[in-house]
Design a protein around this nucleic acid. Structure first.
Length: 269
DNA sequence: ATAATCACCTGCTCGC
DNA sequence: TGCGAGCAGGTGATTA
């Protein structure tokens, strides 16, 4: 489940292989991802200037527009030699003038590939997104201000992409644990001071995961292309009924808004 | 307007 | 051993 750190790790892993290259062609073997795959004909021989990230989207910028890629739940990118045989779930190939191909694999097909002329952020998928969690405008004051009328669980609030992007289920659980906040508390009832702590813990856990991805980053050439998932560092996610790493109390597993939620009833209030 | 639910899709685990 | 059921999860669309 690529979350923001995994997407960022992917970006760093592939950028040196694609930036500055021309797109010589492509193959779309399965056009039905979450939305129909878009690769306009005018991109042939276009130069890929750079790869950026916005939320969990990877933006491949060309002179006149950008391809907008989302890895969904099961997507991954790898760099392969052009002509190497695709696997069952290798849905899209982008051929580069280096003799290599950027290959998208996505077994569950929750990912997407769109094209947007000019600035990628003008695309409807990106237009209403909230702030980036690692930028300075994401802080306790922002969370406090945005939550004043919100009755939803603070965990659901934290995962609302119109508020702040890139915080999926795994890191929402982790950040709330680190901040000592119970996931089901109404967002509007969390104090400014506690939002200060929550914002800083969100940054810390995402940054740590990105650095972990950097250290465990596999070679994106010829490998399976999947960055590490920070598994060893997770303190609550996937650990229901196991002892809390701080106080040894068995962790509580619940569901908030259809999502698996794990917390420590002793450490989080 | 906000909140809750649904839908998309496949691989994997589980119980029988 | 085989098989259906349930689950996982990002996020836009739909319903309440």
């Amino acid at each position: 489940m690529p979350e923001l750190p995994e997407v960022e790790t992917t970006r760093r892993g592939i950028r040196s292989h694609v930036e500055g290259r021309r797109l010589t062609g492509w193959e779309v073997r399965q056009p039905q991802l979450r939305w129909p795959v878009e690769v306009p004909a005018k991109l042939r021989n276009a130069r890929l200037l750079r790869v950026r990230r916005r939320a969990k989207y990877l933006l491949f910028e060309f002179d006149e527009g950008a391809l907008i890629l989302h890895l969904g739940m099961s997507g991954s990118l790898r760099i392969v030699e052009t002509g190497s045989p695709p696997g069952k779930h290798d849905h899209v190939d982008l051929h580069l003038d280096s003799g290599y191909t950027l290959r998208l694999r996505d077994p569950r097909r929750f990912g997407s590939l769109h094209y947007q002329d000019n600035v990628a952020e003008q695309h409807w998928l990106l237009a209403r997104l909230g702030v980036e969690p690692l930028e300075d405008d994401f802080d306790g004051a922002y969370l406090h201000r945005m939550s004043r009328k919100r009755k939803i669980a603070v965990k659901s609030f934290l995962m609302d992409g119109r508020v702040v992007v890139g915080i999926g289920n795994i890191y929402a659980n982790e950040a709330l644990f680190m901040a000592g906040i119970r996931p089901r508390i109404a967002a509007r009832r969390v104090t400014r001071a506690r939002y200060d702590l929550l914002a800083s813990q969100v940054k810390a856990v995402l940054q740590a995961a990105i650095e972990e991805g950097g250290t465990t980053l596999r070679d994106f050439v010829g490998s399976d292309g999947r960055p590490g998932y920070f598994r060893a560092e997770l303190k609550v996610y996937g650990r229901e009924r196991l002892p809390c790493v701080v106080c040894a109390t068995p962790l509580t597993g619940i569901r908030t808004g259809q999502r698996a939620t794990v917390y420590c009833r002793n450490c989080q209030h």
